[in-house]
Design a protein around this nucleic acid. Structure first.
Lengths: 254, 254
DNA sequence: GTCCGAAAAGTGATTATATCTCTCCCCCCG
DNA sequence: CGGGGGGAGAGATATAATCACTTTTCGGAC
């Protein structure tokens, strides 16, 4: 092993190897232009490359996994997920996600997403708009009620709007809220059903963004989320007396 | 060694030891009623307790560290950081917090905080209002420009508004953004100075909240943050040509 | 020729053990 | 009584071997 020379820029601020390795790996992802789904070199290969032992490199990977930067699959490999060091993240071990939390999450999204939509209308690039259209078309194609895939396709639209806002940090924030929302929703209503109105609303929002109409985008996004709140209220009413039971079973938020 | 018997509860849902260990450790924290700052057993002790090897337990600790649940200090020990189930949090290892990120963070806060202020105006309890007043008085009392304590007292007001909104999740979200903002600001402008306008603005916002005037609270909060943006622009201009240099040195966020 | 299944290769998961470095605190020396 | 040295304890890292899972490949059966 030749002189474990550090190619890194004057690091040494933290004498913590695994901390430096996380940055090193993120740099690698950026430099090699790896995107979500791409596979990283094997643990052994990475360890050799950085001149560290495998358990050490593993610690770095675990940290990246915990923040959603990479995805580790036993027997298969390590894959890029978000690929960047996220600044705002959702707890990986959500506890106490009851109906209270679901409503709070929706409320929070109602604050954030209209802002994102407005920003997207003002700043979306041509590439952003193209991706939004792609995502919407994909959702239309894979539309089947009571299908998890369809729900995910609809989520993708919200993600795409967040990214199109041009503010990666606010986008991350919304992603964190959406992740938690999905978990809370699934826990509250195991039999999810996709409503066709989703697609319709999304199309209208896209039109407003493409038309650079920030006010309208904001309004539509706001109404879209309010409708979701109304749906939840409906579902709760349907469940009737079971609601209280459900609430307890889930361990209502703190 | 055949059929290593697991002393742990049933589990086996995820055949991933370190995943189970993270939950196990969090349970331990809860069961032993450990709070922020308390020390956990040593790595070796924990490994022995759960019947795993130290590197494996270490991976679990790294994951918890990555999400801010615990704090690991070389030579000293592992300590509880928040342990409590926060749902949205700032990365405890922020990287790439340059001036770009500072502006994005401010932008994000400009989306979130007016919403929080409006919600606080609608839903703040008497106790919330009392605390807001306390915090504001405290900030006035400890007002010294160029003092870190003064800056923190002003931050406390924003925290208090967030909590008064009645939405703990959106409050956590804003806290995460504020934490990151503070770090990014300190990195960009090491010689922080507190402006007296802060206090004045906060007093006005409190008045609007106490007066249950949601629209006005929203407006004031919005303007307050826009002013902060103008100040940053001014600081950047002051630094003149050095700005570009600074930007590079900090490693501007992607 | 095609298809299925078993084996092999590659990759992550876990173990066990040893050594190094840092922090903290106690106790001894001045 | 105060400060510094040193030891105990804690985390950090290395090494090497083995286990478990996934993917690929290749040969045999049909």
């Amino acid at each position: 092993m030749p002189a474990r020379d550090r190619p890194v820029s004057a690091a040494a601020s933290t004498p913590d190897l695994s901390t430096r390795l996380t940055g090193e790996i993120l740099d690698l992802i950026r430099r090699e232009d790896l995107h979500a789904g791409d596979r990283l070199p094997s643990v052994r290969a990475l360890a050799a490359r950085f001149g560290v032992a495998t358990p050490t490199l593993r610690e770095a990977l675990r940290r990246l996994q915990a923040t959603g930067a990479v995805d580790i699959r036993h027997g298969s490999g390590t894959y890029v997920r978000h690929g960047r060091g996220r600044l705002v993240l959702a707890s990986p071990v959500p506890q106490g996600l009851g109906i209270d939390s679901l409503l709070h999450l929706l409320d929070a999204r109602t604050v954030v997403e209209p802002g994102l939509a407005a920003m997207a209308a003002e700043r979306a690039t041509a590439a952003d708009l193209a991706r939004l259209e792609d995502v919407l078309l994909d959702a239309e194609r894979s539309f089947f009620p009571n299908d998890g895939r369809s729900a995910r396709a609809n989520e993708a639209f919200h993600f795409a709007v967040a990214r199109a806002s041009g503010n990666p940090i606010l986008a991350e924030t919304d992603e964190a809220l959406m992740d938690l929302y999905a978990v809370a929703y699934a826990a509250a209503f195991p039999h999810a059903r996709t409503r066709s109105r989703e697609l319709h609303d999304h199309a209208a929002i896209l039109a407003a963004i493409a038309g650079r109409n920030a006010q309208r985008a904001r309004q539509l996004a706001h109404r879209h989320l309010e409708d979701a709140g109304a749906d939840i209220a409906l579902l709760l009413a349907e469940m009737g007396g079971d609601a209280a039971e459900q609430r307890t079973a889930l361990g209502s938020g703190q």
